[in-house]
Each structure stands twice: as C-alpha cells, then as structure tokens.
Amino acid sequence: MEYLLHIGIMLCIYIILVLSTNLTVGMANLLTMCQAAFYGVGAYIGTYFLMQFNLPFVVIALIVMLATGLTSLIISYASVKLKGDYFILGTLGFQMVVYTILYNWVNVTRGPYGIPGIPSIKLLGIWSLTGIYAYFFFSLVLTVAVALLFSYLQRSFCGRMLKACQTDEPSSQASNQSIAKVKIGAFFISAAFAGMAGLVYASYVSYIDPTSFTFDESIFIITALFIGGVGSRVWGPIAGAAVVVILPELLRFVGLPDAVAANLRQVIYGLVLIVLMFVRPQGLLGDAKLKQEPTPPSVEKPAPAKTSPYTNCSKE
C-alpha cells in the first residue's frame, strides 16, 4: 500500500510539472528543455527555507514560486528574442548552466553529496505533515488545485492570448497585444509551479542531489507531455504523466529477468514513444494539430451570420 501511495505522490508531482510545461509548450508552442532546471531551483530554494526557517507551507511555497519565477525571466527574455530551434538551444543552455551550478557550487548546494534530512512541510506552522498518507492527500489536493488553476488559466484571457501567439504571432502583435508580456507571464507561472513541485519533492523525499534535475529529466517531462497530448487543457498532461510514471512500475510485474530489467523497461518505453509518434502524433488526448501542412485555401462557406466571429476562439 505504501508503494502505491509513493507512486501516487510521484504521479502528483509529475502532473504538476507536466501541467506547468504544457502552459508554455502547449499554449505558446515554445518547446522548453529546462523544466527540470526550474524544478531543481525550486527544490534547492525550498530546501533552504525548510531547513533554516520554521515557516508554514504557504509562505515557503510563495517564496519559492517567486524566486523560481524570477529565474525564469532569463528564459522568457530568450523566448522573446529567439525563435524555433534557437530557443530550444537557449533553454538547453540554461538547463545545463543550472545543473552545473547545482553540481559544482559545493559550498552552497553540497554538490554531488546532496542535502539529507530535509524537514517535512508544516501546514499552517504547527501541524507538520508526517507519514505517507498525509503526504499523499496533501499532494492530491495540491495537484487538483493546480489542475483547476491551469484549466482556468488556459480558458482565461491570458491563455487565449498565448494560443493566439502560437497560431499567428504577427497578427496578434498587430492587434496591439504585447506578446512579450504574455510570454513573460506564461514562463513566470510555468516556472513558479515547477518550482513548487520541486519543493514538494524535496520535502517528501527529504534528500535531494543534482542528479534529479538533469537534462534527461527535462526530456522526460517533455516526452510525458507529448505522450499525453500537447495543448490539451488538463487531461492530456495528466494522462501523459500517468503513463510515464505508471508504465515503468507496471513493467516491474511482467517478470522481466532481473539482470536486464531496468534497461529493458527503458527499451519498451522508447518503443512506446516511437510507436505513439507514428500512430497518434498528437498524443493520447491531444488536440493540437502537429502536422505541418500548408493550410488549404479556404473553401468553406462563410459562417452563419448569427454566430459571432469570436466564437471560434473558445473552441479548444
């Protein structure tokens, strides 16, 4: 049972991570390769505050989210300035810089030795979360709240603006919308929630080291998003996180020979990824069009007069 709860908690953490990634990748079509960097920054800053101060969770979470959000400014600056593959490379560079700093700045982060004995979260200052059950329910509630928030965000004005940027950047710029502001906001929120996931992870596992926040981890988060479905509101990322977290665990019970089990699991995971990209490139629950087709000349009849021209925007 504890095993199942552990998987449940990890699933919750990954759902938050994938949801936060979906805000930038899915809505604004900016493929970030540095979500694990924000996750790591959040984990380390959270650890510092958990160990030094006896503050309630809400306060620490807000500090962590603010600090991680501030680090995201580098990336949002990049997103305004760089396009396409250059942006991907910029995020890759940021990821590597953060990882190297976490790994090598031994005086502050203890580097490869990691930080053990991180105290658990205190809700409202007095009631410390103890036991795996408490953590499970806490992370479940948190995840549901985050999912609702993201669902709201994407339907809101900002979400639509992001979608507009993705679809046609010049024309949304022409309609007097500051794309830079929207992108900065999106990255701020995305990074802030990844940082919060880091905080939850650090206090749950009670030990962190830089190897949890590598480039591979960023790729893992991105693949989870692509498996679930890029751009879908909430269920896509949840499904993606569920697949990448639960599938390897299920494969434990298939009875693979022990010596090669870990590698064979990875092989199966890779194959699933390839097959999925062939069979369902938009992901399990995705709706985003990922085919690169030249848009066919419009032969549709004009929409009936009674629908307002803006109704199309609400169609996700």
């Binding site: 790729i219 991105i222 693949t223 692509f226 990875q266 092989v267 995971y269 890779g270 194959l271 699933v272 990824l273 390839i274 990209m277 062939f278």
Partner: peptide, 8 residues
Amino acid sequence: IASIGMMT
C-alpha cells in the same frame, strides 16, 4: 520525440 525514443 520519436528520435528521443529511438535513442533510448
């Protein structure tokens, strides 16, 4: 993404 899968 398929390339990542193939690499794995």
